[in-house]
Write a protein that binds this DNA or RNA. Structure first.
Lengths: 230, 230
DNA sequence: AGAACACTTTGACTTAAGTCAAAACCACCA
DNA sequence: TGGTGGTTTTGACTTAAGTCAAAGTGTTCT
């Protein structure tokens, strides 16, 4: 006989592991779990488009999602890549306006969808979630602030240096980095195009600052990289 | 004999008129008012610098403040201009990290300073404020999303068109606009420099799309402007 | 009124980075 | 194992927008 509560329990475990629902007790989580539904998306599938009317927000149960904007001639600016445990599109769920960006699955992805109609009530009932969401918004605002700084005030080598140092930081300051996205995606994340990124990577390797082998990048001259990132 | 409660009452009136403290009763506002202190800044005075350690957030009682980032060679990107009733720098007050941007008074400005140490307690005690702040963050995130779109995916004429249409919208769709900032500041807001903005304004006026007389701008061909803004 | 200062415009020049096109590389699947 | 499709690189070219410098234009304050 199958224990039908097992997957539900796993769902609660997952929810309690997310930053958004951190600090909620089992009972509150169970109530929440009633409201959400799971959807899976194949690699490359659109989740929503820029301008779509929003009817809820998403939590990534597994896989990865890029949230991005498109220019008139098809160039892409990635705003952020969301992974397991992250939640996204809460702003439209909160203000009821359209999505300011599009979202696409980068790989096979399972999302938990939370309908907008329960959202405000949820926040009013759970001050903990509201504070968690506030902290999450604060992180996004800082990220955006850095992105604007990069796009407006730095050139591509500086943006790349900033990214590589961040990667290194996240890996405890290691000098051996591994790109977990394609170089095309990295270009879109840095606000440039693959050709320019390719040339910039080549330039930095010529200058002995980094060494590239496919998706593996060695930092050879960290001070120079820090100077570039300023 | 002077009524010493009059300015305090005016302060409460002001606080209750802000979006952040919307929905609070007189008693809650009075409690709040104990925590804040007023500071005035002359035009051009720095309020804080990028990288400063944050010890609180600000509410604009009167005047205007620009929040901006500087590049290595002194170029400026304005993130937002805050006016009467607006509050800013809550992100650093919330996460305790440094200011991600600098702030300077654009004109003689009175600010109410709210120390960080009371901030989290304030939020926990007043779910209303937390929700108001969440909505404010959501507005900022949308603004940033538009800014990134502009900086990364549009050229200066498109950014200018977007700005002019927004100005027009805020004035009920009027065709006669009035810039309430200098053209240098507008350039910094659009992520460009005064020379480029000047040439772009000239180009649009040559094409019969707008007509410029100092700080007054007439929209002559709205469809063309909308096409530019996309 | 006029000096001092800030803001805006114009001109000549430079440059970072985008476009387009083609080749090279890689990975996965049948 | 070889082909198909996606990714990355390279090359030649174009262009939007930045830099620097100087001349106008306004505005404010004494």
């Amino acid at each position: 006989m199958v224990d039908s509560t097992a997957p539900f329990s796993a769902l609660l475990d997952f929810l309690s592991s997310t930053q958004l629902f951190d600090g909620l007790d089992r009972e509150q989580l169970a109530e929440l779990a009633q409201l959400i539904c799971s959807q899976t998306y194949d690699r490359g599938t659109s989740i929503f488009l820029q301008g779509d009317t929003a009817d809820g927000f998403f939590i990534v149960r597994s896989g990865r999602v890029k949230v991005f904007q498109l220019s008139a001639n098809g160039r892409e600016q990635i705003l952020h890549i969301f992974g397991e445990g992250d939640h996204f599109a809460e702003v439209p769920a909160l203000d009821g306006k359209c999505f300011p960006a599009a979202a696409t699955a980068l790989e096979s992805t399972e999302l938990l969808f939370f309908p907008q109609k329960f959202f405000l009530a949820l926040l009013e009932k759970n001050p903990t979630i509201t504070i968690n969401l506030l902290k999450s918004f604060a992180r996004h605002l800082r990220r955006f602030s850095l992105l604007v700084d990069n796009l407006s005030l730095r050139e591509v080598p500086g943006r790349l240096a900033t990214y590589l140092l961040k990667l290194s930081d996240e890996d405890g300051g290691s000098d051996r980095l591994h790109l977990d996205i394609t170089k095309s995606q990295l270009a879109a994340l840095l606000g440039t195009i693959p050709e320019t990124l390719s040339r910039t990577l080549y330039k930095l390797s010529q200058e002995g600052i980094i060494e590239i082998d496919g998706k593996a990048i060695d930092v050879r001259d960290r001070p120079a990289l820090e100077r570039l990132a300023q």
